[in-house]
């Protein structure tokens, strides 16, 4: 039953959200997520249009993610906080862990990003370090459970204030870019961080197979 629900969700999302750069107008299933958070056995599926009003009553942290390759779109709720890390889940039990809005690990994604190590970026976003040169390591696990490191040389830039709109709601942010180059390629990550540290919007590189991950913070 749960698989069927997931399939329906994915079908609904794919049908409506697979075109265009921004996932506007996506259908989503808040009730399903609400049930999943409570550990309900068989969540009732209710499709709602994704609007600011639609999430007005949501009282838990909620993000919307989009994986570039495969056009996967999911709503994810925060399941666990551990020190400065926050783990978000979708109803298929795929999880994304963030620190200061920076993706630090995925579980259940194909393929997973096993761990991310980006100390200078975290220091910049957490207010304890400068922009400039940085190193980023993507750790990946192969089929024999061996962990390999992809090391990137990066440049961090604080591009100053930028006003954005996330699901019809304005947000005043500072815009930070992270340009990285390594043996597995080059990419630019982008972060729009609110004054209180909330990462309202970000675009982060997952790897060659999946491209970029777009993360919108819908509810703090």
């Amino acid at each position: 039953m749960r698989r069927a629900v997931v399939a329906l969700v994915l079908l609904a999302l794919a049908g409506c959200g697979s075109e265009g750069a921004a996932p506007q107008g996506t259908m989503f299933l808040l009730d399903t997520i609400r049930q999943a958070r409570k550990g309900g056995d068989e969540p009732q599926v209710t499709a709602l249009a994704l609007t600011r009003a639609g999430v007005a009553e949501v009282d838990y942290p909620l993000i919307r993610i989009r994986v570039e390759e495969g056009a996967r779109i999911s709503l994810m709720y925060q399941g666990q906080a551990n020190a400065r890390h926050r783990t978000f889940y979708d109803i298929a039990k795929t999880s994304f862990t963030f620190r200061a809005g920076v993706l630090t690990a995925t579980r259940g994604l194909i393929p997973d990003l096993y761990q991310v190590d980006a100390p200078q970026l975290l220091a910049l976003l957490e207010g304890s370090g400068p922009a400039g040169k940085a190193q980023r390591i993507h750790r990946r696990m192969d089929a024999t459970a061996a962990i390999g490191d992809e090391v990137y040389d990066c440049v961090l830039q604080d591009a100053g204030p930028e006003d954005i709109v996330v699901l019809d709601a304005p947000a005043a942010t500072r815009y930070v870019t992270e340009d990285c180059t390594g043996p597995a390629g080059s990419f630019r990550n982008q972060y729009w961080q609110g004054a209180d540290g909330t990462m309202w919007l970000s675009k982060q590189w997952l790897g060659e197979d999946l491209g970029y991950l777009l993360v919108e913070r819908l509810v703090r």
């Binding site: 399941g79 666990q80 551990n82 889940y89 089929a143």
Partner: peptide, 16 residues
């Protein structure tokens, strides 16, 4: 052996 035909696709674990 290092390159699986299909990458591991099981659900993620619950966080500690």
């Amino acid at each position: 052996p290092r390159k699986a035909l299909v990458p591991l696709a099981s659900p993620g674990p619950r966080a500690i």
